[in-house]
Design a protein around this nucleic acid. Structure first.
Lengths: 364, 364
DNA sequence: GTTACGTACGTAAGCGCTTACGTCAGGAAT
DNA sequence: ATTCCTGACGTAAGCGCTTACGTACGTAAC
């Protein structure tokens, strides 16, 4: 149990060489006699020695660690807001890319007001940082960038000077709504939005408007209601809606609200999609399991994580390359709730480069 | 964009003090004049200087980073196995505990055979390691432990010499099955298991047997079928079962298989729970959304992560304390599929110390 | 006015690596 | 037999911090 790390010096003396040689052996340099290398490696093994990452980092100016900063709503007790599940996908993707690049991934959640402090403490430990939207304030990001390469996720404002990876939310919602209009011929749609001031929420609504405009339908200036991105909020909004009228389709800003809507409609004895169609957004796991199965849009969150880290790794190597920004495409998941009669869809052939996430792999 | 980190020397000379003073100021030591401290802090601020974690780590012999090692099945293309969702919860919990303790969390997934290498590379970067079951081989864990404090998760064999956090799977399954027997009076149960050689799977079955034995029911020596912990596997097993007979209850080793079972039963026009009851295990998000809602057991995965890291932090400070192991309790989630007529259950009062995870917060 | 401390800060020795140079065999070329 | 490489390794100077000591100054006690 007593943990006494051994050092390169012990390994050196035990194998009768200098520390330089030990170092070279550990890095698999060439220009060494195989015999010497084996002796060194054997000694290292016997002593259970692993080069100290801190010392190595100090000497090479490279920690071999990249960080990702996100905002953990759930833990801050900040709101009733659902902890965003997609975060996990992003993190997994980031981990994968980091490991593939030979680095390790440091994760840190800002909560409430403590973001600033956290960010700076983390910044001393990593070679670069992926910063998710809403985790750190713009000025703080700017300050961090004075010491570190930064890649942002989902910060698409034109003024964002950093490399960025985002998902084409607006285009995705537009595509989904066009499906409703073109394929199903719906003309009477209602949009239930998320928190009014959330940029993400606004994007979704903008895509909705895009589609209506394109097809010469009346374009509302604001969502019918703010369902707060929660199941309960969605239910509430639909309950209110039903006291007024019954539209052809209820387009929801996310899956949670759509699921809430389905619940209310069932209670009201309205058939989905027979009497009303419903769509969601995000493709959470439950979307496949509610009845009817929910038509929605899948966001490639794992790809977001992967690409963000890959971009960061790149930026670390080429600090002066010109800024890059990527807009990742989404995948519609057409199921039953929009009115499509989906036969048991065969597994998609795995030929595309976009990897399916577990949630989407099997269709209901 | 050009990133030139400044050093303590620049801060020192800019504020007209020695590096020692700068260091002291950054650590908020007392025994300093407020004036000097402010000068130093101001200089640090102007230079956007953050102490280099590597150098600091080298000097203090403490990186301020703990790591967690898990196995990412999904990425290895190793099997059809579902990527274990609970992992995300564990990671989030671990992150929370690490951040709370002032440390950062490094995450790394072993995939396929590369685990060994990864583990050692990570071990140089952290102060301690949480190792999840199945991510690293026992001998490798032993080797790692020669350099680092280790806490294992879900390695409950009596020979495990390390601190461990596990969930009382066996007791949980036993409790669930007793509910079926005692409350509902079922006597004719069937168990669909996971991969036969998985220790986790075996635990679940053991709990099932415990319950039967206690109530003097016939105790099978093996599960009725191996559903591989997947939805498809569960469906397959139930399809086979139905060609033979219809039991009172189908107890599934996890939720995925239970959901597969529900699908097959629906197709077969069998009412759940009217004709057959079904139970799952794990309480994945979908369990609340399938119809009927699924009776299952919730595992406190977030707590697992939190406690593991807390234990590790403790171990780092007290390397010679005696070994500790904790067995975390689970929470049954009694819903409809077992035959209980669940009225809208009120929110549980938040008086218990066990925190509810998002998935369980709202009942259907 | 000395002595004796306490306070506030400076000095410099590491922490455990990497790597630019330097050294030293031994073989090729002359 | 010299000279000149070249390959294989050793030397030692950092990398950017922390911290045990040391020093200088001011204050209190006498």
């Amino acid at each position: 149990m007593a943990t006494a790390r051994s050092t390169i010096y012990e390994v050196a003396s035990r194998s009768g060489v200098s520390t330089a040689t030990v170092s070279r052996a550990m890095q698999g340099e060439d220009g060494m006699s195989a015999k010497t290398r084996d002796r060194v490696l054997a000694a290292a093994n016997e002593l259970a020695w692993v080069p100290d990452g801190r010392a190595r980092g100090l000497a090479t100016r490279r920690a071999g660690i990249v960080g990702i900063l996100f905002h953990d709503l759930d833990a801050s007790g900040e709101a009733e807001e659902e902890s965003p599940l997609y975060l996990d996908e992003v993190i997994r993707g980031a981990e994968r890319a980091a490991t593939a690049g030979g680095d390790a991934l440091l994760i840190a959640a800002t909560r409430g007001r403590s973001g600033r402090e956290l960010a700076f403490s983390v910044s001393g430990k990593v070679d670069g940082l992926v910063v998710l939207a809403r985790s750190v304030s713009k000025p703080d990001i700017a300050a961090l960038s004075r010491t570190l390469p930064i890649v942002t996720v989902a910060i698409r404002s034109r003024s964002n000077p950093f490399d960025d990876i985002s998902v084409d939310i607006r285009g995705a919602m537009r595509g989904l709504v066009e499906h409703l209009i073109v394929v199903h011929g719906y003309r009477d749609l209602i949009f239930i939005g998320g928190p009014a001031r959330s940029p993400d929420s606004m994007e979704r609504f903008a895509g909705y408007r895009d589609a209506l405009r394109t097809h010469q339908l009346p374009v509302p200036s604001s969502p019918y209601a703010d369902g707060g991105f929660t199941e309960a909020g969605g239910a509430r909004a639909v309950r209110a809606l039903l006291t007024e009228r019954i539209p052809e389709v209820i387009v929801c800003g996310n899956d949670e609200m759509a699921i809430g809507a389905l619940g209310v409609l069932r209670t009201a004895k309205l058939a989905v999609p027979g009497d009303v169609a419903v769509t969601g957004f995000d493709d959470i796991a439950s979307a496949r399991h509610v009845r009817p199965t929910l038509t929605t849009v899948h966001q490639p969150m794992r790809d977001v994580g992967e690409q963000a880290v890959r971009m960061l790794l790149d930026r670390i190597v080429h600090p002066d390359a010109k800024r890059r920004a990527a807009l990742l495409p989404t995948e519609p998941r057409i199921r039953r709730s929009c009115g499509c009669a989906v036969r048991t869809t065969p597994h998609r052939s795995s030929s595309t480069s976009t990897r399916a996430t577990p949630a989407g792999r099997r269709l209901s």
